[in-house]
Design a protein around this nucleic acid. Sequence first.
DNA 1: ACATTATTTCCTGTTT
DNA 2: AAAACAGGAAATAATG
Length: 366
Amino acid sequence: MAGSCEISNIFSNYISAMYQPEEAQPPMELLAHLGKEDNLALPAETTEKPAWFSELPYFWSKAQVLEWISYHVEKNKYDASAINFSCCNMDGYMLCHCTPEQLRLIFGPLGDELYARLHEIVSVSDELTWIIDLLEKEDMSSQEIFQDSSASELGNSYTKESLEEMKSTNPFIQADFSYISGALSPGSSDISASGTGMSHSPNSQDSGGSDIDPDPTEVKLFSSDDGFADYDKGDVKHGKRKRGRPRKFSKENRDCLETKKSKHSPRGTHLWEFIRDILLHPELNEGLMKWEDRREGVFKFLRSEAVAQLWGQKKKNSSMTYEKLSRAMRYYYKREILERVDGRRLVYKFGKNSSGWKEEEVLNRK
DNA sequence: ACATTATTTCCTGTTT
DNA sequence: AAAACAGGAAATAATG
């Protein structure tokens, strides 16, 4: 009941929240707990989610960037007429690479605020993913993590400061970024640093697709008392599971029905887009996949099971495997979203019906 | 309520 | 022998 248990739940919640871009569960609630029960007033006015709400700034589209800017203009009661909006034609990736000076140039005094808020999100996400990493990789429960000396230091300082701060400044942080950097779980031994992308996995074997990842059935990210418990969970070993997509647990949606989602298939919801986005952000993908031929759109899975786990997390399906993911990939051949590359294991190629991966396209934003 | 789309799951067989 | 690859078949979730 006390600390550790709670923290474990908090993280479970947080993680599940992050891996689920559509269903918004206000993270403030969780953060408030971290901050010791309720010492912070919740800026509850988050009934509706902006488009940038659920994604990592790197992946914001131009429209999302604009929305984000508008949000801060409003919030700061800033005089928008002073802003040259023709200069705001950038996507999240570009935005993230702006210096404070550049932002100040475009947005005036608001530029500093924007820079601060932006990097708050980014840095917090990095730290969060570090912890998530530990949870996954070591197959530890979060209690264990927080009892672990070094981890608890990090965990605590981080929960207290960054989370609290970020909460007070940006209530919307609940990014989907985690799907990229969340399970960068390197080897099964090297826990050093991963969230910010430092180590280049030296092992890019030629055919060892399934490395490090712990047994998929062992991944227990979600604690059991929160509605995620009964969710199929793939009893892969014992009884046979039913065929087809795992059934959705539909509880847990009590009053959040008021926030109706208008967009049906938001960007990044398809497997090939997910794969593409990993490829497009090598600084975050920590050796999950790599381009074999950037021009031609040929790529390779380096850590196939890890990618599958990530995909599973995004889809809230803890029993995803590369085998199943690859079946979906093979269906893309017929639709020409992918082209066949035979003879080369774990290698695929984007087809004419895929988009957004070519260098030109990337440079011209999404 | 029904149809379609995009997977997800399972399986058997083949190839590397 | 262990992974991947191939696809067929069927199930399921979300959408239209």
